[in-house]
């Protein structure tokens, strides 16, 4: 549980600092004296509801993966039957695809910021295609493992490999729903404000899942 506890300590520490800063010099019982009506404790204007919503969701997703990593390390230590699984080399190519996916969505986001609809469209297309290719690539990895005799039940290390890669892929698939929405908005040429919000959320989510993949892949390589 160390991994999860470190994550939670960081998260709650940040939250606590923010809350204490908001509340230390405040006299809640005093009515309407200047600063409290000045919205001094509001989040900065850049923190739009959509961004904050995404951040909160990512915190929950991080908790899910931190717990999966904790379960992985605990299961490894608690029993003596763990046989490490060498991750197939195809994963390197898949990682590259995911990087391309992230770059594509970043391009879309940049395009939306600069009001360039064509760039948004091409970025989204590149991002979506690379992501689909990544998921197909992960399926190929699974098939390779099956062919090599590494089934779900072979060993807990294999079972965890399938579980963790599947969880990650499911989150990408969920992201693709948001991506479809962004695509629809962009292809219909809806207002750039809506497209911007949509593309930005996709890009941030993809960067997060890429970072997460680096951590998961690193863990699979090291252990």
């Amino acid at each position: 549980m160390t991994v999860t506890l470190i994550f939670l300590a960081l998260l709650l520490g940040t939250f606590l600092t923010w809350i204490v800063r908001q509340s230390l010099n405040v006299r809640p019982w005093a009515s309407a004296d200047g600063p409290s009506v000045n919205e001094s404790d509001s989040l900065p204007p850049a923190a739009t509801p959509a961004r904050v919503g995404l951040a909160v969701f990512l915190a929950a997703v991080t908790s899910l993966f931190a717990l999966s990593i904790s379960a992985y390390t605990m299961r490894m230590e608690l029993s003596g039957d763990w046989i490490p699984l060498a991750p197939p080399p195809l994963l390197w190519l898949n990682t590259l695809l995911l990087v391309v996916g992230s770059v594509g969505l970043q391009r879309a986001w940049d395009g939306a910021r600069r009001n360039r609809l064509a760039q948004v469209r091409s970025g989204l297309k590149l991002g979506g295609a690379a992501t689909v290719a990544f998921i197909v690539g992960q399926l190929f990895v699974w098939m390779q493992l099956q062919a090599a005799g590494h089934h779900l039940v072979t060993n807990p290390a294999t079972a965890f490999f399938y579980l963790i890669t599947a969880l990650h892929a499911v989150h990408l698939l969920g992201g693709l729903i948001a991506w479809v929405r962004a695509m629809v908005l962009a292809s219909r040429g809806e207002s750039m404000r809506d497209i911007h919000v949509s593309a930005e959320l996709c890009a941030l989510y993809w960067h997060f899942l890429l970072l997460l993949w680096f951590i998961l892949f690193g863990m699979l390589l090291v252990t």
Binding site: Q22, P28, D41, L43, G53
Partner: peptide, 21 residues
């Protein structure tokens, strides 16, 4: 639901409704 509760409390408070109120 939880996303909604947290974001609404953080973002949709009316004017003057500070955290400490």
């Amino acid at each position: 639901g939880g996303l909604n509760y947290v974001v609404t409390i953080l973002q949709a408070r009316t004017r003057g409704m500070t955290l400490m109120r």
